[in-house]
């Protein structure tokens, strides 16, 4: 069973120019005990999707339709109090900027003890758990470091602490929003590896958002590719990265500089811009930038199966699909 099961989710923002349709009919799953990655560039709707899952949306956002099922229950129909009880316990988050996640005037130990307020443990036991968690994410000398303030830690250390705090409540789902983007590459590798190990140990499901294809390839089991507010492709990392079915995924992979081995002074790009999300084109959302566009693209494609468990929203796949 999927821990998180999003069905036909549409979210729009009220703007002076009209409704900005940030998400349209997004359907995706985070299977139990797996790491699912979401890849997409700016404007693809990653942030809106996360805010819709944890129900912390901007005041001008409106859910048009759809369901966000967490362990089978629709979160969109939960009360605010129920959501509050869920956040930080069943669903935890790690954000991009480790500087802003921590309260600067409290020691790390104090913060890690405070977030266990729901548990009926003695303070000494809570402290012991905090120490264990810090050790688990790879912070040397955790006992002593509990007494330090966030500013005494480097960015990489702070992100480790953020992960430790997010995993403390043994959540069923960890949402990691570009957790390594602000870090140096050599530290990124360390944190990715640690996250993978922790996931094996704790067994929670992870929704990992990143624009970095290499990191997704290395860390995730499944991947969802988003473009301009729609899911254009989903499947196992192997299927999607080896046999990309959607032209956007293919182009994106080609653009990744890690992919280009032969020295060139003319790097591949995806010409054009994402469409205006206030006045959307009628057909395929990627059509105007697509190099294999044809007549059918004037109509909006639906998700078609490329291979078992691998789907893409492209007419070319739908044509090939076995009836």
């Amino acid at each position: 069973m999927a821990v998180l099961d999003i069905r036909d989710l549409s979210v729009s923002y009220a703007t002076p120019r009209g409704a900005l349709k940030a998400l349209r009919d997004v359907t995706m799953k985070v299977p139990e005990g797996k790491i699912t990655g979401i890849v997409g560039e700016s404007g693809c709707g990653k942030s809106t999707l996360i805010s819709a899952i944890i129900r912390l949306m901007a005041p001008n956002a409106k859910v048009g339709s759809g369901e966000v099922r967490f362990k089978g229950e629709d979160l969109l129909s939960r009360s605010e109090a129920e959501m509050r009880a869920l956040r930080g316990t069943e669903i935890s988050m790690v954000f991009q900027d480790p500087m802003q996640t921590h309260n600067p005037v409290l020691t790390v130990g104090r913060q890690m003890i405070d977030i266990q307020y729901r548990d009926k443990l003695s303070k000494a036991d809570k402290r012991k758990r905090a120490t264990e968690m810090l050790a688990l994410v790879g912070i040397p000398d955790p006992q002593a470091r509990l007494n330090q303030y966030p500013f005494e830690f480097s960015g990489g250390m702070r992100q480790r602490i953020a992960i430790a705090m997010a995993l403390m409540a043994k959540p069923s789902l960890l949402i990691a929003d570009e957790p390594t983007t602000a870090l140096d590459a050599t530290l990124e590798v360390q944190i990715i590896k640690r996250l993978r190990e922790l996931q094996d140990e704790i067994g929670c499901s992870i929704l990992f958002i990143s624009h970095h294809l290499g990191v997704i390839a290395e860390l995730c089991d499944e991947v969802v590719v988003m473009y301009a507010g729609e899911v254009v492709e989903s499947g196992t990392v192997r299927d999607v990265f080896h046999n990309p079915a959607h032209p956007y995924t293919r182009a994106l992979l080609e653009c990744d500089p890690g992919h280009i081995k032969v020295r060139t002074r003319n790097l591949p790009t995806i010409p054009g811009n994402i469409p205006d999300l206030v006045s959307l084109p009628t057909g395929c959302i990627f059509a105007d930038r697509c190099d294999v566009r044809y007549d059918a693209c004037g109509a909006r494609p639906v998700m078609a199966t490329a291979s078992s468990g691998h789907q893409a929203a492209c007419h070319l796949i739908a044509e090939k699909e076995p009836a």
């Binding site: 290499g214 390839a217 290395e218 192997r238 992919h259």
Partner: peptide, 12 residues
């Protein structure tokens, strides 16, 4: 290490 820290978009 810097070279290795730029993983390729290939799971295998």
């Amino acid at each position: 290490a810097l070279l290795a820290a730029n993983p390729e978009p290939d799971p295998d």
